[in-house]
Nucleic acid binder design. Structure first.
Length: 421
DNA sequence: AGGTATTCACATGAAACTATTCTCTGAGTTAGG
DNA sequence: TAACTCAGAGAATAGTTTCATGTGAATACCTGT
């Protein structure tokens, strides 16, 4: 009997009334046509063009918020350049794209170099070698034949923040150590102020050009969405106003095209699951919530145990405080106004210590917990403000920044982890 | 009253430490000739 | 004697701890009116 039901599920899935080609909405999809970025692409191309004559070009830096088409544009130019270079074939040209933020690579000079070497066809152990040795190896590989190399370093601001700007400096200096080859760097950064933080000496040695990618506005987003939706969905499936709403949502989030596409895709998935025939407006709202929720819960469940304990303390404490606050208000005024009562570092640490004791886990120092709290702030899970209570001391004022529903889920996750261990 | 000086309870920084991962090297061991 | 094993030295990283210094403003303490 159950077979029948399963068959039915498969059947309805098989009919696939919604999508024609879902991959078009996946964030790693490269469209053939890049809308509203013609200006930027032209600039990139004209700056990098000398490469085709075998000349070194200035280093190039691209700025713009996430989902503003930076990566897409460079990769487009990269393809065109390679195609052209193949045709006239005078100089050997290599263009390597590396996303510095990919988890494995992200935060050390060593690993970035190792990854680059791997891309160039060499190999380097994950660890155990002095960094200097990796540098020499890199130079050796590059310099083994006459060639021009363009390194595209995506999300480079993250890396430079973690390591130091020495990394950039070393890269630029590398050219002088190369006899046959030349390197040119294309950095991509989400942070517009990124280069201001870099040591001025390094900055001057970069001798860079900059291109800024402004965020898409709602209209442009709409174009992009329409363009893809046409091919990704079956005809007539999208209700009036859906695309506009997606665009509006994403435009609010600094014009993030990736976000807009995600919204549309997830709304489609929700529609499919609901066995509905059309993508309605309400699915967009649901999709928006789902994205937000998944993101947060994902982060929380991936945090290490100590982090989760700290967060759990914060959650518990803010629940307590809220209850007290409510009761007091009810006593005095009789209103059940639920304001978010802030809690303070000391409270969290005490609670956390007890929690550790109960669970037989070694407690971290206050210093460390302080950092952990700050990290949660960076993740946007809590809001933190340093306040001074005069003689009462100076501390962080902590507020939970996630909706109640997600808090409940988060609690479950953490409790699960605690009981299991 | 008005102005300094204190003081609280952490924040913030820097350095040092620990555990773990991994390579590389050379000493010791082994098996086969 | 060549091949193999295995311990130890070094490097690098993540996650801490230790030690030191900084800090905003409510309060305590003066000062002179």
């Amino acid at each position: 009997m159950i077979n029948l039901e399963i068959e039915q599920i498969f059947d309805s899935f098989d009919k696939n009334t919604i999508f024609k080609d879902k991959s078009l909405l996946q964030s790693n999809h490269k469209p053939e046509e890049i809308l509203h970025r013609r200006q930027q692409i032209k600039q990139i191309a004209s700056i990098l063009a000398p490469i085709l004559r075998g000349e070194k070009t200035s280093n190039l830096f691209l700025y713009g918020k996430t989902g503003s088409g930076k990566t897409l544009s460079v990769q487009y130019v990269q393809e065109q350049l390679l195609k052209r270079a193949k045709e006239n074939n005078k100089y050997k040209l290599r263009i390597e794209y590396l996303n510095c933020k990919l988890k494995k690579i992200s935060d050390t000079e060593y690993r970035i170099l190792a990854e680059l070497i791997k891309k160039m066809g060499g190999s380097v152990p994950d660890t155990g070698l002095p960094t200097q040795a990796v540098y020499s190896k890199f130079i050796e590989i590059i310099d083994s034949e006459k060639q021009l190399i363009v390194l595209i370093l995506d999300e480079i601001d993250q890396t430079v923040k973690k390591i130091s700007s020495d990394f950039l400096y070393n890269l630029t200096r590398m050219n002088s150590e190369l006899s046959k080859s030349q390197i040119c760097i294309v950095g991509i950064s989400n942070d517009l102020t990124f280069l201001d933080q870099v040591d001025p000496r390094v900055k001057s040695s970069l001798s860079e050009e900059e291109i800024v990618f402004p965020p898409y506005n709602a209209l442009q987003l709409k174009d992009i969405l329409n363009n893809r939706a046409k091919l990704a969905f079956k005809e007539g499936i999208i209700e009036e106003g859906v695309v506009e709403k997606c665009a509006a949502f994403a435009a609010r989030e600094h014009g993030d095209a990736r976000r807009a596409l995600d919204l549309l895709r997830i709304a489609g998935e929700l529609t499919e699951r609901d066995n509905s025939k059309k993508i309605k407006l309400k699915y967009i709202d649901e999709a928006n919530e789902k994205i937000e929720k998944d993101k947060i819960l994902d982060i929380i469940s991936l945090e290490p145990k100590q982090f989760q304990l700290v967060l759990y303390s914060i959650i518990k404490l803010s629940e307590q405080k809220n209850k007290e606050g409510k009761r007091q208000l009810q006593l005095t005024k009789g209103t059940a106004f639920s304001s978010k009562e802030p809690i303070f570092t000391g409270d969290v640490y005490n609670f956390y210590q007890e929690l550790c004791l109960k669970n037989k886990i070694d407690a971290l120092t206050q210093r460390r917990v302080s950092d952990i709290i700050q990290e949660f702030d960076m993740l946007g899970i809590i809001n933190v403000r340093v306040i001074s209570k005069g003689r009462g001391g100076r501390m962080r004022e902590i507020k939970l920044a996630i909706p109640r529903l997600i808090v409940e889920k988060a609690k479950e996750i953490i409790q699960g982890v605690l009981n299991y261990v």
